[in-house]
Each structure stands twice: as structure tokens, then as C-alpha cells.
Amino acid sequence: MELKLNWSGETLVAQPVGRLDGESAADFERQITEEIGDHSLVVDFAELNYISSAGLRVILVLAKALKARECRLDLCCLSHPIQEVFRISGFDQIMNIHQTRKQALAAD
């Protein structure tokens, strides 16, 4: 998995490319944790085509850590298969999910 990291004002935008799974989840978390400080995070799923249980867990861990620091986590641009994984696991009920990156950034 490649991870593109960009700042949009005070918000870090992370765009994983390819697969977020047991092989890549720890690296995904490490790179974001090293960069984010006390800022909010948008994860743009536009170029992610697969997420496993380990991928979902790392999203949960980041969401919890950000909430503890009173920072936001917003997700956007989920493909249909990934939306389905989020629905089955109930993540769509506890995460802030947006159609577009613009909407996700505006929510911050």
C-alpha cells in the first residue's frame, strides 16, 4: 500500500492506495501518527480497493486516539465494496463518512 499524505490547512489528509490489510495496517498507522500531532484527520478512500479486518481495526484505533485528543476523524470517497464492509461491521454508525473530500474537509 502506498500512502499519500497532504495538509489541507490544519487538517491532515491521508489517501491510502491499494490494500489496507494486515500487511500494511501498522505502517499506515505509524506514518499518520508520526505526522498528525494535535490535528484532525481526513482519510480519503478513493484509491483504496480492499480493506480487511486489520484495516478496520487501525481505523478504529486512530478514531479513538483522535477523539481522546478532541480532534476529528472524517472518512470520504468510499467505494461500494468498502462501504459494504463498513455497513456490515457497523462502522458506518460510529464514523463520520462523507461522499467527497470537500465535504469531509468542510466538516472539520
Binding site: D21, G22, E23, A25, A26, Y50, S52, S53, A54, R57, V85
Partner: peptide, 11 residues
Amino acid sequence: LALRNRIDTDA
């Protein structure tokens, strides 16, 4: 084992 990153699962 999943929490210790020894295994991973999907559907």
C-alpha cells in the same frame, strides 16, 4: 491472534 497481527480475516 488477530490483535497480535498473526492472522487477518475478510469475508
